[in-house]
């Protein structure tokens, strides 16, 4: 498995504040990878380090096997809130893209602009949020990068614009086979478009894996209150909550759980992500991460 992005002890400090602290992860290439986590987990910092906009304070980062360089033709970046140049027209954006990028695919850019119905003469400042996002995606994709990084690209969009954006993104993925890493809070969207997911909490990878595997191996167990120390081999406790009489557990287990004293339910991806995010306190991380790979 080749890697799109490798971080090793990666740290970014602003004065005394750490935006990313000792982050170690390995993002596989050839996937659409979702990066989720609470605000302040370091997702944006990680993406900005990956496209060379920031330099690390400590540690190592490798993107497509090399140290990231700002403006690399191999890496496309769509920043948070999909910024565009308000005073320039849609056509100006494409001309600028062509001028700045030797690998620019003018046919692709034109086709996408037509497809999403953007008027080339329109000033970018007059575009709707959804149109602006489509323009930013077009400019990033027409570079024909091997890796596309997107930071919360759909957070500010209405549901229809969001769906349109993700349709466009997936179509580009299907056509060009590029690797994608996108951060988002909208886990339901990520469940559709991502085949690999990373949950980042306080610069730490809480869980990483293929979406299908994550869905297949996580279970919610509800039953009479009991000591959770003995879950059995091959089972990892992700999250637990107890009342006087009842225990509710989120458990990761590759083997099916057949135990009539528990009611066993499936979890959707959002439930799984939330379990890892809220299970992050206490004795968690190292035990939970056992057998992750």
């Amino acid at each position: 498995m080749t890697s799109a992005l490798i971080a090793d002890g990666l740290t970014k400090r602003y004065g005394r504040r750490s935006a990313l602290k000792d982050c170690t992860l390995d993002i596989p290439a050839g996937h659409v990878v979702g990066l989720v986590g609470p605000n302040g987990a370091g997702k944006s910092t990680l993406l900005q380090l990956a496209c060379g906009l920031l330099d690390p304070t400590a540690g190592r980062i490798e993107v497509l096997g090399a140290r990231p360089v700002s403006g690399s033709p191999q890496v496309g970046f769509v920043a948070q809130d999909t910024p565009v140049y308000a005073g320039l027209t849609v056509a100006d954006h494409l001309r600028m893209g062509a001028h700045l990028n030797p690998s620019w695919d003018a046919a692709l850019a034109k086709r996408r602009i037509d497809q999403v119905g953007l008027d080339p003469a329109q000033k970018a400042g007059k575009l709707s949020g959804g149109q602006r996002a489509q323009l930013a995606l077009t400019v990033a994709a027409a570079k024909r990068p091997n890796l596309l990084l997107l930071d919360e690209p759909v957070a500010a969009l209405d549901p229809l614009a969001r769906r349109n954006f993700l349709q466009g993104l997936m179509e580009l993925t299907a056509e060009q086979g590029m690797s994608i890493v996108m951060s988002s809070h909208l886990v339901a969207d990520l469940e559709r478009v991502c085949d690999h997911l990373i949950v980042l909490v306080a610069s730490r990878v809480r869980v990483a894996g293929d979406v299908d595997d994550l869905l297949a191996t996580h279970h919610r167990l509800v039953g009479r209150r009991r000591d959770t120390a003995d879950l059995g081999a091959g089972r990892a406790l992700v999250e637990q909550s107890h009342t006087e009489v009842q225990s509710t557990l989120v458990v990761r287990s590759t083997a099916p759980i057949v135990d009539p004293s528990w009611q066993v339910d499936r979890l959707d991806l959002e439930d799984i992500v939330l379990a890892y995010m809220s299970g992050a306190t206490g004795d968690g991380p190292d035990r939970v991460l056992e057998g992750q790979r």
């Binding site: 996937h31 993700l166 993925t173 299907a174 559709r192 991502c194």
Partner: peptide, 18 residues
């Protein structure tokens, strides 16, 4: 085709191929 599914459903192409 994978591309048609992807464009309509907004879903990962690898998922369709799988």
């Amino acid at each position: 085709t994978v591309k048609e599914v992807v464009a309509r459903v907004a879903i990962n192409p690898n998922t369709v191929s799988k």
